[in-house]
Design a protein around this nucleic acid. Structure first.
Lengths: 130, 130
DNA sequence: ACACTGTATTAATACTCTTAATACAGTTAT
DNA sequence: ATAACTGTATTAAGAGTATTAATACAGTGT
């Protein structure tokens, strides 16, 4: 379910956070679904439970999971998550355009890139079917 | 000339590399200009000369500066740099479009963002006047 | 000779990430 | 109640990296 990349410079717990958020976003982990337990996920990934614990603590802090003591951790109702993600996208996208301008890329070129890339990407991924 | 951000998680030497590359890109540091000496830049930034040395070694490895022993370090003829930067941009931009598709953003929306952001950014920055 | 350049080395310190070994409290099923 | 799960907390150790510090050496220019 999750594959770690040890060549990645970022710490493992961050990768775990990212992957789990992605699974929530994709709907593989649905609202109120139980998260894998700290120990079992640690076993799965062959890493220390403390490292998973750290990732879970951060996910809880972000409001993406909630904890019921003794029972486990569960996926939150995460409307906020998709909003956050979209907000981040918008910021990054406008930064990209600033960079494009610095690089002397014209708006026509940008439009063309959007067009080409969009078609190509949709063809591969299947794109935004909700 | 350079301001370090100690809240940034990345190491100082990486920030120094980034800032110096930016100054070259902007033309503040022109081809064959002398770079500030290791010791003087270290003084300026109130950090250890070794840290600057590390940044310079990396800049040389990337071909952005060249060294004349006993004289100093100088800005390379860096056509490659702008090409590299453009290449990086293209990769990132297509990644962004993939993300947009995941977020269910239509190509029309993307085109509109490009349009709005481009005009706004050019107005502020003055944009790609070379 | 002196004051600059870059470069190299070694040591010490600090910080972060990760693992390991426990321990404790709450839940659930038997 | 006991066993087997949950999450949480703590403490210690190890590894790796970033940074500083103190030198030393070689080349350049005045």
């Amino acid at each position: 379910m999750i594959i770690l990349d040890y060549k990645d410079r970022r710490p493992i717990y961050e990768q775990v956070i990212e992957k789990l958020e992605e699974l929530m976003f994709l709907g593989v982990l649905k609202e109120h679904d139980p998260m894998p337990s700290v120990r079992s996920l640690a076993m799965d990934l062959s890493i220390n439970p403390n490292t998973i614990q750290r990732a879970y603590a951060e996910l809880e802090r972000r409001g993406y999971i909630y904890v019921v003591k003794g029972k486990g951790s569960f996926v939150s109702e995460n409307r906020t998550m998709k909003e956050n993600r979209k907000r981040e996208f918008l910021v990054q996208f406008s930064d990209m355009i600033d960079e494009a301008i610095r690089l002397g890329i014209s708006d026509q070129e940008l439009h063309q890139m959007v067009e080409v890339q969009y078609k190509a990407a949709v063809k591969i991924t299947g794109g935004g079917e909700t």
